[in-house]
């Protein structure tokens, strides 16, 4: 259910039916009433919960959702840096990743059950943010070193990557990149990702009209 109005209307119907049984529980004395109460108290709430869960899971992939935590604000700002050497900014501004799903697209895990792993990572973020001691934005570290697999999910097979002058300059380099032995974001390559240290000195792109 993409449209929340439809889901809200469905939940509203469920609420109205539950109200009928709460106000007039005597209806359940008949056989038909027992069947109805099972539908209204068991089947419909599970459907409402499932639809709501699906919607919340979709929302949790959005850039807006990730940036709703105060400590993520500098990371959101780094997406607007007006410098093509900044990896995250150039991907975001040139729509190499969907702008609405910018964080999730690069920070999910493209291995088996990777999406689920990313969700659990997100739950951990929320736990730390609301119930733990959140670090300063500049001190935030990835749980694991960034895996080239996430870059290659889009770039593998792309001409600009496969035939790139630097990538093909050393025959061993391409194999090392594809096997994750040489990191894409290691020093000398695409090392500037979210550069929070120089954020105050940067110029920012105002966005498309």
């Amino acid at each position: 259910m993409e449209n929340p109005i439809i889901l809200v209307a469905f939940i509203g119907l469920c609420i109205a039916l539950i109200c009928v049984f709460v106000l007039r529980p005597g209806i359940t004395a008949t056989r038909g009433g027992k069947v109805m109460v099972f539908l209204v108290f068991f089947v419909l709430p599970i459907l409402c919960l499932g639809a709501g869960f699906s919607r919340k899971m979709d929302q949790s992939k959005s850039t807006k959702f990730c940036l709703s935590c105060h400590i993520m604000e500098p990371y959101g700002k780094s997406l607007q840096i007006d410098d093509p050497m900044h990896l995250a900014a150039s991907h975001f501004q040139n729509h190499r990743v969907p702008p609405d799903l910018a964080c999730y697209t690069c920070h999910t895990n493209y291995a088996m059950f990777g999406g689920m792993k990313a969700k659990f990572g997100g739950l951990r973020h929320i736990y730390v943010y609301y119930l733990g001691k959140p670090p300063q934005p500049a001190e935030i570290k990835l749980y694991e070193p960034y895996n080239n697999r996430e870059c290659l999910h889009c770039h593998a097979g792309a001409r600009s990557f496969e035939e790139g002058a630097v990538h093909t300059s050393d025959p061993a380099l391409m194999a090392a990149i594809k096997s994750n032995q040489t990191s894409c974001i290691s020093s000398g390559c695409h090392q500037t990702v979210h550069d929070l240290a120089t954020l105050n000195e940067q110029k920012f792109w105002k966005g498309a009209d």
């Binding site: 939940i11 509203g12 609420i15 709430p45 919340k56 609301y130």
Partner: peptide
């Protein structure tokens, strides 16, 4: 159940991490 569904309606309109929580 009514309480749970009413909370769900309100949480659906929020898009931040708090609404998810």
């Amino acid at each position: 159940l009514l309480l749970g569904l009413i909370v769900e309606v309100f949480s659906l309109f929020g898009k931040g991490a708090l609404a998810f929580l």
